[in-house]
Nucleic acid binder design. Sequence first.
DNA 1: CCTACCGATCGGTAGG
DNA 2: CCTACCGATCGGTAGG
Lengths: 195, 195
Amino acid sequence: MARTQAADYDQKREIITAKAAELFARRGFSAASVSELAQTCKISKSLIYHYYASKEAILFAAMSDHMDTLVELICNRAKATTTPEAEFRSLTRDILQCYTGAAHHQKILLYELSFLPAPQQKEIVAKQRAVIAEIEALLLRINPRTKANKKKLRAKVMLYFGMMNWTHTWFNASGPISRNELADEISNTTLCSLN
Amino acid sequence: MARTQAADYDQKREIITAKAAELFARRGFSAASVSELAQTCKISKSLIYHYYASKEAILFAAMSDHMDTLVELICNRAKATTTPEAEFRSLTRDILQCYTGAAHHQKILLYELSFLPAPQQKEIVAKQRAVIAEIEALLLRINPRTKANKKKLRAKVMLYFGMMNWTHTWFNASGPISRNELADEISNTTLCSLN
DNA sequence: CCTACCGATCGGTAGG
DNA sequence: CCTACCGATCGGTAGG
């Protein structure tokens, strides 16, 4: 029954990756041990090495999954039927939803990237750059005059990601401000800086 | 000659703390080893334990030093003689200068806080809260109408720190935008969101 | 022959 | 201020 085992394979692999993302986010990649991950998954350590070649490979899988979701969301999204402003506001809501919905993945992406071997690190960074470029292009469409100062536009994009990426340290979805209210506040702040 | 030894003591302690901040920032607290720190300082590992009780104690010293500098800068600054807006712009420049001037210390403050034992962690967090409260009070002075929505004002303050704290990932002081230009861009963005 | 999986243990290195 | 070490635990792999 090789087919049923293959199905089980993918399922177990996903459990390991998800638990690893949580563990790496909570304790940091270096401080987290493969033994601890095995205990959390209630499997043997050897079984983890059946699914992944190394501890780093687990980190890469967790990061890649999340980064692919972000690229899909930002770069491969449906053509907007509204104004660029409305598109930016809507996209910002979607990104923040993706961030808060996969908080562990988002955290390791921000904190543990340096623990990847150089080739995998480059792969993640390339996708991050694509995401940044997409936001930059969108801001340029909103205000074409920003083309005159590319360096300043780039700074505005990075300040946007600063606001977005820092939210995980303080924002609580069940707190006084809703996720969409926060997204709109970030959109407003970025948009008013464009003029 | 206890006095000359005491002078040498403080000097060596400072070297250890500075080199540790750099090492912890580059490799992460967990991945960095005390042996590696000793080699970097060209002293024995045992000597490090003569100056510090634990690896965590070194991290705390490096964080505390930087946090005290920030508190001094932000909370104990001279009474402004200009408008609140001008004070905010000037303070933002000073904070960014402090960030970029002590990049390693700033990085460990953002990334390695969770590795401190709970009591020391609380001590650092208390100082960070004081800094946040000071910026919030300043924004309130700039636009007193923001008092009507305290939750939104707090969000604006956290977005400000998001922009500031994220700069270390992309900003290069010898790049196309100067440190003061970036500070002014952050000030402008925050100020226009207040209206 | 293969894949899936276990208990036990490897050579090295961590903080102290 | 050093060398020599410790108890424990690390990431990764052995035979079956």
